[in-house]
């Protein structure tokens, strides 16, 4: 029975259209093909994204060398003389992703540990829906919240800071990725087998030791995967950072400065009145390609780690 229960699909050897009339057979195979098309469409979407980004980037890279794009520290596509160095944008994206990661990771892990190891069912019943609400709030709303809430706080603590700064973007993106970090980390923490905890208790460890020396280390790879996914979310995050971080592409590690991320640069050019076939307009595809490659790489790494973790305790 266990081998049957594993797969929900029919064994392939079973005759599918047995006992049907001609129309019944046609109907069954027609439906099969329709459903097949739906499945193929998702693969075609990926192919479409890759093709569009590459094909639209080729004319751009005929105009601007890949070397300049990846190494020049000057991004000024819309003013003369034009400069197409993407490093300031990558710098801005990295600043926001790492900054929000540094904030979200310990808070997320702390919350996940609390929910998984300490919280009463009653607390969980309050916190979990709250996190779902946080996860459901649109990005543009978070951007607005950063301007009216986080930015004034930062300007109060560090007088002289501009309204638009990387720090408020980091704060708001950390809030946005928190629900994901918490829910993924909590899943892996709860997935740590009871036997490991019981063994540690049997050796005389208290709850603190069991949590910090047994449960969290055992769940470490899954926690790392959730961190990676959070970083990837932060890299692709668009509206909140476009509103909060400003539009000043520059090389800086100071979060109190106004910066521009890759996503914000795409929004700025796409929403302006740049002529569609100019090199400056095509930057949106070149930057989009870089964005796609970065997030895809991190996502694949995270999924690989998660898949390995699942195998470990099965």
């Amino acid at each position: 029975m266990s081998s049957v229960a594993k797969t929900t699909a029919l064994p392939p050897a079973l005759p599918d259209h047995a006992g049907l009339g001609r129309w019944g057979r046609i109907r069954e195979s027609l439906i099969h093909w329709i459903l097949f098309t739906c499945g193929v469409l998702s693969v075609l979407t990926t192919v479409g994204i890759v093709l569009v980004l590459i094909i639209e980037s080729i004319p751009f890279f005929a105009h601007v060398s890949l070397w300049e794009f990846l190494t020049s520290t000057n991004w000024a596509p819309t003013v003369r003389p034009q400069h197409f160095g993407a490093l300031p944008l990558i710098n801005g994206t990295a600043l926001v992703a790492i900054g929000s990661g540094i904030l979200a990771l310990p808070i997320g892990l702390g919350t996940a540990v609390y929910l998984s190891e300490y919280a009463t069912p009653w607390t969980r019943a309050i916190i979990k829906p709250m996190l779902e609400i946080l996860a459901g709030i649109p990005s543009v709303v978070y951007g607005y919240f950063a301007i009216i809430f986080f930015s004034p706080i930062i300007r109060w603590v560090f007088p002289g800071t501009k309204v638009f700064n990387a720090a408020s973007a980091c704060l708001v993106v950390s809030v946005m990725v928190l629900p994901m970090v918490i829910s993924l980390s909590e899943d892996v923490l709860r997935g740590v087998p009871r036997a490991l905890r019981d063994a540690a208790y049997a050796l005389g460890a208290n709850k603190f030791d069991v949590t910090t020396r047994v449960v969290v280390p055992a769940a470490m790879s899954g926690i790392m995967a959730s961190f990676l996914l959070a970083i990837s979310r932060a890299i692709g995050e668009t509206m909140a950072v476009t509103l909060a971080a400003g539009a000043n592409p520059r090389m800086t590690l100071n979060p109190l400065e106004s910066i521009q991320t890759m996503t914000a640069a795409i929004v700025q050019i796409a929403s302006g009145d740049t002529p569609a076939n100019s090199p400056e307009y095509r930057t949106i595809f070149a930057v989009g390609l870089a964005l796609f490659v970065m997030t895809l790489g991190i996502n694949i790494a995270a999924q690989w780690i998660l898949a390995r973790t699942r195998q470990k305790y099965e």
Binding site: V43, T45, L53, G236
Partner: peptide, 19 residues
């Protein structure tokens, strides 16, 4: 198909805009 779908779920929405 399965790996493709989970990767699509992680593609930033702005990239879909470009498509």
């Amino acid at each position: 198909v399965q790996i493709n779908i989970s990767n699509l779920a992680g593609v930033p929405s702005i990239v879909y805009g470009l498509l």
